[in-house]
Nucleic acid binder design. Structure first.
Lengths: 124, 124
DNA sequence: TTGCTAAGTAGTAATGATTACTATTACTGT
DNA sequence: ACAGTAATAGTAATCATTACTACTTAGCAA
């Protein structure tokens, strides 16, 4: 993988994003720097960056894939009302059942679902 | 939601499945009982069953949505090699950080990624 | 029972996120 | 500078899922 302005921009945008943007949102943001970048280029680079371990994917409730540039160990809280994804930094430990079963664990993804504080305050 | 043969069959198939089938796999299996069921009917019923809380959705690495009829508290292990999803029954507890932040937690989904025992044995 | 009505269905068309393709461009080592 | 090859822009194709429509059926009330 050799360097390219487009891929650098995609990674930079993702690292600067505190939300968890979809490919089309990333496309919009990168276009501010590179107006004629192609959506296909964004998708291709997101795929490569994911394969190389520079970014990760967040599963959400909508049909689009969300991306994330923050690789530090954390989990997510997804609000069923506003659909915001919040990063939650807390320690995660691998259940011994898995290793006992002989599986090799490399990574994990945890998502908690519920109603966030802001939505609770606004609803009640 | 009134009863329908098609929806009953979809739920029955899903409850009898120990894998985590996609809509088209469920479609195939239900067709053994109801040969002329429509794929759209399968999708619509999966959606309703999910909304009513009878089934859940499992996020995986492929583009298709996987469904699950087993509602008991458990997590998943996804093998990066064979892509099988294994149910892991172990206790899960909500991090206090979440409730401390004022969020209301209703459910959770945890997936561990790695290489399963069978694949490790075959590869090595 | 019978009729009414709204929910459900089969079959098919449409949608839309993602991927593939192709001619062209731009890194990078020699 | 040049060759070789990865990367790009723009566009077409894919395909899982959803929407639509005419028809059917569950379920209730007279």
């Amino acid at each position: 993988m050799r360097s390219s302005r487009q891929r650098d921009a995609v990674l930079e945008v993702l690292r600067a994003s505190c939300d968890h943007p979809t490919a089309d949102i990333i496309f919009e943001r990168v276009r501010e720097q590179i107006p004629n970048i192609s959506l296909g280029t964004v998708y291709r680079n997101l795929g490569q960056l994911k394969d190389e371990g520079f970014i990760t994917v967040v599963e959400s409730s909508d049909t689009k894939v969300h991306y994330e540039g923050n690789l530090s160990d954390h989990i997510h809280f997804l609000c069923k009302n506003c659909h915001n994804i919040t990063d939650i930094f807390c320690e995660t430990k691998i259940p011994s059942v898995l290793t006992d079963m002989g599986h090799k664990v490399q990574s994990q993804k945890t998502v908690y679902y519920g109603v966030c504080k802001d939505c609770r305050d606004n609803i009640n």
